[in-house]
Simulated scan of single mutants.
Amino acid sequence: MKIILTVNGERHALDVEPRRVLADVLREDCRLTGTHLGCEQGVCGSCTVLVDGEAVRACLMLAVQCDGRSVRTVEGLSAPDGEPHPLQRAFSAEHALQCGFCTAGFLMVAVGALEADPTIADDPERMDGLVESNLCRCTGYEPIRRAIMRAAAEYASHARL
């Protein structure tokens, strides 16, 4: 099937098998390998991307479901000049990555949540749900939580401007 995806602001006209998942199309056809495949069952969250601003598991979503939609991957977080996104800076400052395999998924689920509602960090229950939505085998959950809270504070300060 012929589909058109806008990935990180760039239009991609692709011919894909109807059964191919978005993660494979991003990695193989768009050459964006930051979207990792872990469990391939939607459990681990390492493949999380934003589709029209909503966090989705790219291993479960068919690429044809994204025809005409906007997809944002971890490669699309930094500014055009290379300046890291506030979440990327926060992850670095809080040492919220160890092996790094889960990091892209955590960044994407967090940016989706923060862009929808920067006050998420004010609610411990919602923060628990956000951090628990993805898996980290290196047990980096507390630094990840701190990083998201740090980025949330930056989002909130910009919202007041």
Rank of each mutant, 00 (worst) to 15 (best):
Val111Thr: 12
Asn8Gly: 06
Gly140Met: 08
Ala79Leu: 02
Leu114Ser: 03
Glu75Lys: 00
Ile148Pro: 03
Ala79Ile: 00
Gly112Lys: 14
Leu135Tyr: 12
Asp81Asn: 03
Phe106Asp: 02
Gly38Thr: 03
Glu17Met: 12
Ile148Phe: 04
Cys44Asn: 12
Gln41Phe: 12
Ser78Asn: 02
Asp24Tyr: 10
Leu107Gln: 02
Glu125Gln: 15
Gly68Leu: 06
Arg150Val: 12
Met61Trp: 13
Ala151Leu: 02
Leu5Asp: 01
Thr103His: 08
Glu115Ile: 03
Glu154Arg: 14
Ala104Cys: 14
His36Pro: 12
Asp128Pro: 03
Ala55Leu: 09
Ala116Gln: 15
Leu32Pro: 04
Ala90Lys: 07
Gly45Val: 07
Glu142Ile: 13
Gly38Leu: 12
Arg89Ser: 06
Glu132Met: 09
Glu40Asp: 15
Gly53Tyr: 14
Arg19Phe: 11
Leu77Trp: 00
Lys2Ile: 04
Ser92Thr: 13
Arg57Ala: 05
Leu107Pro: 01
Ser133Trp: 13
Arg27Thr: 02
Cys136Leu: 10
Arg69Val: 01
Cys59Lys: 06
Val25Leu: 15
Ala90Ile: 01
Met61Asn: 10
Leu114Pro: 06
Glu75Ile: 01
Thr103Ile: 12
Ala79Glu: 05
Ser92Asn: 14
Ala55Ile: 07
Val64Gln: 06
His12Trp: 06
Glu94Ile: 11
Gly140Ser: 07
Val56Arg: 13
Met1Asp: 04
Leu62Met: 08
Arg11Lys: 05
Phe106His: 11
Ala121Gln: 06
Met1Pro: 05
Ala90Trp: 05
Ala93Thr: 11
Ala58Val: 01
Cys59Pro: 15
Ala121Phe: 08
Leu77Pro: 04
Ala63Asn: 07
Glu94Phe: 08
Ala110Tyr: 11
Cys30Ile: 01
Asp29Gly: 11
Val51Ser: 06
Pro118Phe: 09
Phe101Met: 10
Phe91Leu: 05
Asp67Leu: 04
Glu75Gly: 02
Leu130Glu: 08
Val74His: 03
Gly82Lys: 01
Leu50Tyr: 04
Ser46Gln: 10
Leu130Val: 09
Met108Ile: 02
Pro86Val: 03
Asp29Gln: 14
Leu5Tyr: 00
Tyr141Cys: 05
Ile4Cys: 11
Cys102Ser: 06
Val43Met: 04
His36Leu: 11
Gly38Gln: 10
Glu54Ala: 12
Gln41Arg: 07
Leu22Met: 14
Gln65Gly: 04
Pro84Arg: 08
Arg126Thr: 06
Asp123Ser: 14
Cys44His: 12
Arg57Ser: 12
Val16Arg: 00
Arg145His: 13
Asp117Leu: 09
Val7Phe: 01
Arg72Lys: 10
Thr33Asp: 02
Asp117Val: 11
Cys99Val: 14
Pro143Val: 15
Leu5Ile: 00
Gly34Thr: 02
Pro124Trp: 13
Leu97Tyr: 02
